[in-house]
Design a protein around this nucleic acid. Structure first.
Lengths: 211, 211
DNA sequence: AATTCCAGAGAACAGTTGTTAACTGGATGA
DNA sequence: TCATCCAGTTAACAACTGTTCTCTGGAATT
């Protein structure tokens, strides 16, 4: 059962969330490695020293942001990959489009810090993406089209899908950042992403044609 | 014809190159948006104000680094893509492996700043990658396997290849950064990348099977 | 009701930052 | 040879950084 938090714990979590929100906002136009501790506390409206009550460093805050950004996405990905047939591709692209629309700053943060200058954050993202890949692999294994596939090749394919989804997310993001975000642009990205996934699925279909 | 530079111009270019080299070194463990001007001049061994003789800002220096990192790669990519048959994939993976080994810091810089916090640099990288995609597209168009393909689909495929190459480069880089860089790890990345490219090529082969 | 706890405030620290202005001295071109 | 140019220097600026130590007032515990 869930324990009701005391006033004190509740207020602390509220402040912590304010830190995460403020940081995410500031990170829209800079990278984590240049994010200052004082900068964040100023945005939240608290004293600089209050930061240490919640995080050891801005790198620590970054790791927390990784979990916030990707943690809740796992069940959705599993569900989407488990859809059979053509519908899977359509729904996967839609899932990404919707997620980018709903949480653009989170997506930007992940894309930016995946190869960014803060090692612990890179590692946290790497671990999350590896989890996604493994989940995709295990869902694909249940698919009838996976007969005759070994686990290595399935994981190779899963990584291809995951990376492709990240690229697509980044393209949708650019769509939002564009000076005049048009529905036509979004539609174009959707079309390209769909066809790229279709092409990969075609390759998958004929993977075992010749040994 | 090439004009021989005076002592003065030559010395200036030498210092400029020292700036680029020093910056690239410092950027191994941080992002461009946190790179300080004084930090760079200190590493070069020159007064802070000397920086302004060469660059307007660190963002400006970043744009110069983009050209240094990717500019010389275009002819190699064209040549590699023009190779027919299975050999093309093998040679492409080898090209990337060699380039990462020879210029790891440049590759890291591109991967990091592609989605980094400095807009002009992102734009410069985007433009270079678009050039690669267009070059790959025009080489693929010459390929016998491209009969019946329209330009839109060819460009879609070209982007898929280019993005895939960047992902592979980043994996090779992680291989070098690993605490104990083993040849076995490199070989594994080579194998995965090769099979991913093969799968994509299989999809390409059957793209026109059903309209 | 008395005591402990602890999120956040306040002040101070030594170092750092980007940018300005005025300079020097060797290469350059008349 | 002499005047011009200009890459790099020196000095100074206000503003900012992360981190420390001490303090406070309300919640939590007894």
């Amino acid at each position: 059962m869930s324990h009701t938090l005391g006033i004190r714990q509740a207020q602390k979590q509220k402040t912590r969330q304010a830190f995460l929100d403020a940081a995410l906002g500031l990170l829209e136009e800079q990278s984590l490695s240049s994010l200052g501790l004082r900068e964040v506390t100023r945005a939240v409206g608290v004293a600089p020293t209050a930061f240490y009550r919640h995080f050891r460093s801005t790198a620590d805050l970054g790791v927390a942001l990784v979990d916030e950004a990707l943690g809740s996405l796992h069940p959705m990905v599993r569900t989407t990959v488990s859809i059979p047939g053509e519908e899977r591709i359509t729904q996967a692209v839609r899932l990404i489009a919707d997620y980018v629309s709903a949480h653009p700053a989170h997506v930007r943060f992940i894309a930016r810090e995946r190869h960014g200058g803060v090692q612990p954050v890179r590692e946290a993202i790497r671990a999350q993406l590896a989890r996604f890949a493994d989940e995709v692999r295990s869902e694909l294994a249940k698919d009838p089209g996976a007969e005759g596939w070994n686990d290595d090749d399935l994981l190779m394919l899963a990584h291809l899908y995951v990376d492709q989804m990240l690229i697509t997310a980044s393209l949708f993001l650019e769509t939002l950042e564009s000076p005049e975000p048009s529905e036509a642009e979004r539609e174009r990205v959707t079309q390209v992403a769909t066809r790229q996934l279709r092409l990969i699925s075609l390759g998958r279909l004929h993977w075992l044609d010749t040994p």
